[in-house]
């Protein structure tokens, strides 16, 4: 009988001393890969269209982003055509000032490489995009990127 009783001695506790190390490793990974969102979105997170021919945007500091979508604040109405520059809702007429302001943040030599990324919702109207585009052309910001997520387009 004593043979059976021996089993009841209990399992040795699992050594958890290395747990903090593992967790720290994960922590550092996420700390390094994190990019904090700089501006708070005033519009609902745009549902980006899918496209196959996407290119990655390089040089984050040279990218200025324009958001187009539905405003979170109901006073701007429910259409998907609100434009957000920096952290407030604006109109297409404010785009040139926004671009000039963005340009002042980088050195002059880098200005020709600046890209404007348009993050627009699927249901936005082309009219809004074209208004923005005409304004961009006025200030000679000719490189644009229509933000899209990579995937099958159909």
């Amino acid at each position: 009988m004593s043979k059976f009783r021996k089993k009841k001695k209990g399992m040795p506790a699992v050594n958890t001393a290395s747990l903090p190390d593992i967790v720290f490793m994960l922590l550092f990974f996420f700390m390094v890969t994190t990019t904090m969102r700089e501006t708070e979105l005033q519009i609902e997170n745009p549902r980006l269209p899918n496209a196959t021919e996407v290119k990655k945007l390089e040089h984050k500091s040279l990218v200025s982003t324009i958001y187009v979508g539905k405003s979170k604040d109901p006073k701007y109405g429910a259409s998907y055509n609100r434009i957000q520059l920096n952290d407030k809702i604006a109109t297409a007429d404010d785009v040139p000032a926004f671009i000039i302001n963005e340009r002042s943040k980088v050195s002059e030599a880098e200005v020709p490489f600046m890209t404007t990324s348009i993050k627009a919702d699927k249901e936005s109207n082309v009219g809004t995009i074209i208004d923005i585009r005409l304004k961009l052309r006025d200030v000679n910001a000719l490189k644009i990127s229509y933000s899209a997520s990579k995937g099958a387009s159909n």
Binding site: M36, S117, S147, A148
Partner: peptide
């Protein structure tokens, strides 16, 4: 471990992993 977990969860939540990508176009000059 608890402290590290807390930090870990904070970064997990705030992380956005997506890289900006898009269809690039060049506008014609005015």
């Amino acid at each position: 471990a608890d402290i590290a977990f807390l930090l870990l969860i904070f970064f997990l939540v705030t992380t956005t992993m997506n890289v900006d990508s898009g269809v690039s176009k060049k506008l014609s000059e005015k």
